[in-house]
Amino acid sequence: MTKISVILPVYNSQKFIKQAIESVLGQTFTDFELIIVNDGSTDSTLEIISDFKDKRIRLISQQNQGPGAARNNALKVAEGDYVMFLDSDDWYSKDALETAYHEAVRLNTDMTFFQMINYNDGEVYENDWFDLKTFDESFEDRAFGPDETPGSIFDLSVGVCQKIYNRKFLNSIDAQFPEGIFFEDMPFFYYVYLKSRRISIIKRHLYYRRKHDESITHIVDAKFFDTVEAGQILMRIFIENGWYEQYKFDLLAYKVNGPRFALRDLPDDLKPHMFDLIKEDYEQIRHSQYFDDFTNQLGPVKRKFFLDVLKSKDYYEFANSSN
């Protein structure tokens, strides 16, 4: 049995894919399979992948379906005891797999976090989000459950690549990524985190996260429309699993803030459509049993945003009323 399945979805990644693959093949830990999902690339990505002749590489080619579908398809065929994810423009430290695996096995965890470090044009720098600063030293060197972090789960990094997962656990809870949208990490993370019973952290930088002009979260553009649907999926997950009442104060704030900040930061030509998506979502909420929670649980800034969207017929009226 393979110990780790590393899942690497790729789409038009010719600039960086070689380094990503080499960072896996050069690991100090060797008992792994690398499942590369070519998600309909149209550049030379596939040719670069094909140059590698390592028998641990398993290549899946599919029409372009997005990262959620690519990861789901890889999970269906993964054989490792544990699963790790790598994005095609990032890379692992040399002992990432070894360190993550031994920690997960030692503490018998469902999910183990490790630190990520940012890389931007030769500059390497840390931030609190990826350094797991939400977890103080009392969480180190032991397993814990989500019940120990009730007030801080929305301060955690949702990035799927920052963890190692027990594959049998993922299968047992039918963990899947939403397909056809960006920001698919977010609903996946919260579902898996709150289903976990044994979680641990490693305060070491095992993953290099490259920031560049084409990276998904670097530029605020049309993909941020998907923050609305991702928030809707997240809301359903909390409701369907009986977590809503416990977490609703922070959940509703989190759900509102993603699209709110996207609307603020999007280019002007995209703002009207983003507003329409948010308004459609809020109209559905208006006619649901959760409307009172939004008006009563949200803080003043988010409540005003919520109500201003509802009372405005379009983005231009909203923008004028907000000034």
Rank of each mutant, 00 (worst) to 15 (best):
R210K: 15
H212C: 01
H212W: 08
H212M: 03
H212P: 00
D213G: 01
E214V: 01
E214M: 03
S215G: 00
I216L: 05
T217K: 04
T217E: 04
I219P: 00
I219K: 08
D221T: 10
K223Q: 13
K223M: 07
F224E: 03
F224N: 03
F225H: 10
F225D: 04
D226H: 10
D226I: 03
D226C: 03
D226G: 01
T227K: 14
V228C: 06
E229K: 14
E229M: 12
G231A: 11
G231N: 12
G231P: 05
Q232H: 12
L234M: 15
M235A: 07
R236I: 00
I237W: 11
F238P: 04
F238T: 04
F238Q: 07
E240T: 09
E240H: 13
E240G: 00
N241L: 07
G242M: 02
G242N: 03
W243Y: 09
E245Q: 13
E245T: 14
Q246D: 09
Q246C: 07
Y247K: 02
Y247H: 15
Y247F: 15
K248P: 02
K248F: 05
D250M: 06
L251T: 07
L251R: 06
Y254A: 11
Y254D: 11
K255V: 15
V256T: 13
V256A: 13
N257F: 15
